[in-house]
Design a protein around this nucleic acid. Sequence first.
DNA 1: AATGAATGAGGATTCATTCAT
DNA 2: GATGAATGAATCCTCATTCAT
Lengths: 211, 211, 211, 211
Amino acid sequence: MNVHYAAVRGMTDDKRRAILNATLCLLSQRGFHGFSMKQLAERAGVAAGTIYLYFHDKEDLIQQLHQDIIEEVGCHLLADVDDDWPVAQQYHQIARNLWQFSLQAPEIMLSKGQFDTMPPDILFGASYESPELLLAAREKVFDPVRPIKEMYQRGRDSQQLKNLPEDVLMALSIEPICNLARDHCLGMIQLDEAGLGAVIEACWDAIRYHH
Amino acid sequence: MNVHYAAVRGMTDDKRRAILNATLCLLSQRGFHGFSMKQLAERAGVAAGTIYLYFHDKEDLIQQLHQDIIEEVGCHLLADVDDDWPVAQQYHQIARNLWQFSLQAPEIMLSKGQFDTMPPDILFGASYESPELLLAAREKVFDPVRPIKEMYQRGRDSQQLKNLPEDVLMALSIEPICNLARDHCLGMIQLDEAGLGAVIEACWDAIRYHH
Amino acid sequence: MNVHYAAVRGMTDDKRRAILNATLCLLSQRGFHGFSMKQLAERAGVAAGTIYLYFHDKEDLIQQLHQDIIEEVGCHLLADVDDDWPVAQQYHQIARNLWQFSLQAPEIMLSKGQFDTMPPDILFGASYESPELLLAAREKVFDPVRPIKEMYQRGRDSQQLKNLPEDVLMALSIEPICNLARDHCLGMIQLDEAGLGAVIEACWDAIRYHH
Amino acid sequence: MNVHYAAVRGMTDDKRRAILNATLCLLSQRGFHGFSMKQLAERAGVAAGTIYLYFHDKEDLIQQLHQDIIEEVGCHLLADVDDDWPVAQQYHQIARNLWQFSLQAPEIMLSKGQFDTMPPDILFGASYESPELLLAAREKVFDPVRPIKEMYQRGRDSQQLKNLPEDVLMALSIEPICNLARDHCLGMIQLDEAGLGAVIEACWDAIRYHH
DNA sequence: AATGAATGAGGATTCATTCAT
DNA sequence: GATGAATGAATCCTCATTCAT
């Protein structure tokens, strides 16, 4: 019975996963309004109605996908990063993890821009009209990557990093690598190992405290 | 007669401008597929059919908007920049111009992400499938901001900037400021004069050649 | 003054003719609903609004075109036909005139099918619902070709033609030639001089009284 | 189970049939561009979107209707026609079948003119520009009525019919009856049994070889 | 007389979602 | 749980017609 249940769970979860994967693919290529639920069903190999067994509607689907991705990204970025390392080493590891991750899951990289431009009520259930609500909701959603934020805080407090808000530090050192990874995935730029090293170093230069 | 003609010209151009402005507004909020031509007509204060007197279809409208914006951005970013200045000074002026521009035309800043995630055939008439065609088409479209690219080339050749492709240098020094400007417009971050100076300096640190 | 007026009249009539010619062309290719007034204006070399100076609306335009065509057709079919000739000779002359006419005005031939399938209220101002009204209206419109009908009557009354209604006699002897002329114009069939003679003879066989 | 399945099949096919029937009705009255998909949906008793479950677009719908009609017409015209009969008898049977058919399916008769004036790419996927392609496509579409064509060939080869192309023979002996049947359906002419016999005989006179 | 910009109703088609099976 | 036929509102775009110039 247990086995049977597990099997069923697994199967249904397979369907959920198939739908989420197909959504990611279509979302990264066409954006939220740019693909239809029928296309999605086809791509996922399920019937149109099946999607609504797992997700309440299109927005819910996107929201759950977003959450899933953040968890996966958080997991990959922090792999092999030791809390005891100096901030510089931590940062370099994270940056390399990010690049590595973009190679194995390019659609996720491509989907970032779509999520960034999405009305925030879809992802967070709050709009720009009420900034404090939105901030709180964002914090919750981005909880899986909080350790990264905390690393920046520690780095700043110990004067290894410049005295700037964490958001800004990340915008200076993580986002450029995201953007370049995306361009790399799209074939718009080429970057070899040496180039990658130089880029990571440049981003480190941007945020490290110059004595 | 001349005046009269000008007035007429002005009026019809007013319609085109009204449509483009309304498009920018809706595009930045909802994305390409996220707003309807009827909404657009309403916002622009014209009849739905009128849009098609000035633009062939929705894609053409977006493309023309994109071109218009690039010209306007190019114009503003390069204002008060002297060719004879050292690269460092040129960069700082451009960065400040960019921030300034984001304050007076926030919707343009917000629309950048939408354009970045748009299928390139809409903007450039070429897809990722044929990279060389796409590259050529991009170059043409981005011609109004070519002087900025050339500044980066000169800076690199004279060893004032790191030895990285211009695209990468820009991704390290211009895009982060764009992103922060966008977040600033949305109220997601606050940045005072000192903070802005620090950010610009940080981006300069990212790309300047450290001897 | 008179001359001036005539010139103006001529010019405006030129416009009317240009519009009618362009209408014929578009109608024969696309049918009543298949072409737009803007296309028509373009083809005729006038502004869209100009059409409405000469015709009340699209239906009126078609109706006037129809009337014009019937007059022109009547004129050509009856050319060189002498009232004193025997019916057989008259018929042969008309049939040859018809073929000849189809060669010099193929669009008219092609437009016949369009008029035949048009709701009769457009052409005659009466519908199939009130057959007697429709019949009267048709008679009036087709007045320019009445001599042909009368020829058939005389032929029947003098027992040179079969004892069938004129409409039927025409459907047996004129319409097939029209259809073949249309197919010839479209390149769907080829018919040389001998073939044409055989066809005309065959149609004559269909209606002549066999003693 | 089988019965159940059949019932379901029947029901869905019912929808397709309802749409085709409604299309025929509207097409014969208004022509291809003259009726809207919304009107069609209303007439067929389905939602607008439902049409697109069965047909790719309006052109596909018309094309399928055309094919259906040709099959039905072929079936009716050749009913009770024996291959062993002399050509004369075959022709007479076909002609009577045609008249009979026009009485029980008048809309089909009325639709013929609409199909005849339709741009051939809709019906055959080929235009007048490439006559050989068009001819081949036509032959395929008209395959269900090929036996009739073959009868004409045999009749001509055995010198029972005049030495004219089959197309011409049909234009002389079948099309006039079609046209008269249409006029009869519309109430534009009356034709009793004797009249019909005379008409069929007249058409036979047109094509039979006179020794 | 002539223009052609402007209109907004109406065109074909697609969409997210539901529900009977 | 899974299906996919069915819906009808909403999509983009075209149309015949008007009217200020």
